[in-house]
Each structure stands twice: as structure tokens, then as C-alpha cells.
């Protein structure tokens, strides 16, 4: 519920113009310019010439092994960038609040909720989504193959998130018990309540991973 006393965000139609003017004002204001030079100074000292300074929105992200040049707002989440800027709609949005797991992707091999990561904070990191799991020749990742073979999901909306969590977990725990794998993917919910078959699929995937030497 917006605080009616806060004029900065009361979005009456009449205020819209002043808000736009405000944003434009911030971009060109003296404060903004001075913090840009401030950050440039800091980043050249640390040798990170590519770090985004104030106002810079064009980023090169590493997504599924490819450099992707994309225009990103400062307040934009990774799930948003992936789905609506890069067309990678395999990453789902369920809750947008870190409460369901359907947006799970790997960032530097570790599972994260893409709905709860600012895209600007992953500039220098590697993002892997469900679209990047299969080999370039189209061969499925062992965990994907496990899901296909065991028919683990019903509507499968939760599936990309579960698979990414499982892959992240199995990369460091290749030989889990069923209970351990359940703990590993416990940050993912399935609205169809298909957990038993999901776990069977993921356990099959774990087995394929070990056999293929990927684990």
C-alpha cells in the first residue's frame, strides 16, 4: 500500500509528468555526473575498466556460454532480462518473491532465484538457463533425459527451475540419497504436487550424470 504522504511515489496522473521530468533530471543532474566520475575513478583503480558507471545500461552478459549485448535498467531483475529482453522464456516467473523456485538459474554454477537478482550485479558472472543445458548438437543434459524417461512432471511449469536446482546440486553432490537430493531441490515448489515422480526423475538424471562422467 503506497504511503499517501510520500509525494515521491504517489502516482496520480497529474504527477506522471513531474515524475518523468524527475527521472530526466536525475540523469543529467550534477549529483549524477559527479558520482559517475567518482565510480570511474574507483573502477580504474581496481582495474575493472568495464564496470558500469552511472547511467550506463548497455551490458555484455555471459548467458549460456555466449556474450549477449543487452540494454538493462538498473532496477531490472535477471528473470526479467532473460525472459523479456533475451527471449529465454524457459526461466519461469511464479512468485517474483524468492518463494517458489520456478525462476532458478545457475550463476557461476550456483542456483539462484533469477527473480531476486539485479541483472547489473551479474555483469562479470556466467549465467546458465534451461536453454543452455543441452549440448550444442542437441543432446539433452542427463538430468533432462532423466525427466523425459521418467515423465516426472505434470504441467511442468516448475520443471526448468527444478532441473536447474538439481544440476547445481548434483555438480557438487554427484551421488546423493533420495533424501539428500530432496533437500538439494527443497527451494523449488511444484503446484501440481508431483514431488515423488519429480524426485524419481531427478534421481534417474543423477544416475545418467554419473554414467556419462559429467558428475
Amino acid at each position: 500500500m503506497p504511503d499517501p504522504t510520500d509525494t515521491r511515489t504517489t502516482e496520480h496522473a497529474a504527477k506522471k509528468l513531474s515524475r518523468r521530468t524527475f527521472i530526466k533530471g536525475v540523469i543529467t543532474s550534477g549529483i549524477a555526473v559527479s558520482s559517475a566520475s567518482y565510480l570511474f575513478r574507483a573502477s580504474s583503480v581496481s582495474g575493472q575498466g568495464s564496470s558500469a558507471a552511472f547511467g550506463e545500461r548497455l551490458l555484455t552478459l555471459s548467458v549460456n556460454g555466449q556474450p549477449r549485448r543487452v540494454d538493462v535498467m538498473k532496477n531490472e531483475t535477471l528473470a526479467w532480462t532473460l525472459r523479456y529482453k533475451l527471449g529465454l522464456t524457459g526461466t519461469k516467473l511464479g512468485c517474483d518473491r524468492a518463494e517458489c523456485g520456478s525462476c532458478t538459474v545457475l550463476i557461476d554454477d550456483v542456483p539462484h532465484y533469477a527473480c531476486s537478482v539485479l541483472t547489473h550485479t551479474v555483469r562479470t558472472r556466467k549465467v546458465l538457463t534451461i536453454e543452455g543445458l543441452a549440448s550444442p548438437d542437441g543432446k539433452l543434459h542427463p538430468v533432462q533425459q532423466g525427466v523425459v524417461d521418467e515423465q516426472g512432471f505434470q504441467c511442468a511449469y516448475c520443471m526448468p527451475g527444478f532441473v536447474m536446482s538439481a544440476v547445481g546440486f548434483l555438480n557438487t553432490n554427484p551421488n546423493p540419497t533420495r533424501a539428500q537430493l530432496a533437500h538439494g531441490v527443497s527451494g523449488n515448489l511444484c503446484r501440481c504436487q508431483d514431488y515423488d515422480k519429480i524426485l524419481t526423475s531427478l534421481m534417474r538424471g543423477a544416475e545418467y550424470m554419473r554414467r556419462s562422467g559429467r558428475a
Binding site: 536525475v26 565510480l39 574507483a42 564496470s51 558500469a52 552511472f54 535498467m73 532496477n75
Partner: peptide
Amino acid sequence: DVMPAFELLQPSS
């Protein structure tokens, strides 16, 4: 929709 706009500052110290 997305969060309202803010400036994102990323200091290194």
C-alpha cells in the same frame, strides 16, 4: 511489473 526506478551504485571498497 518491475521495481520502481532507482540508481544502482556499486562501490568496490
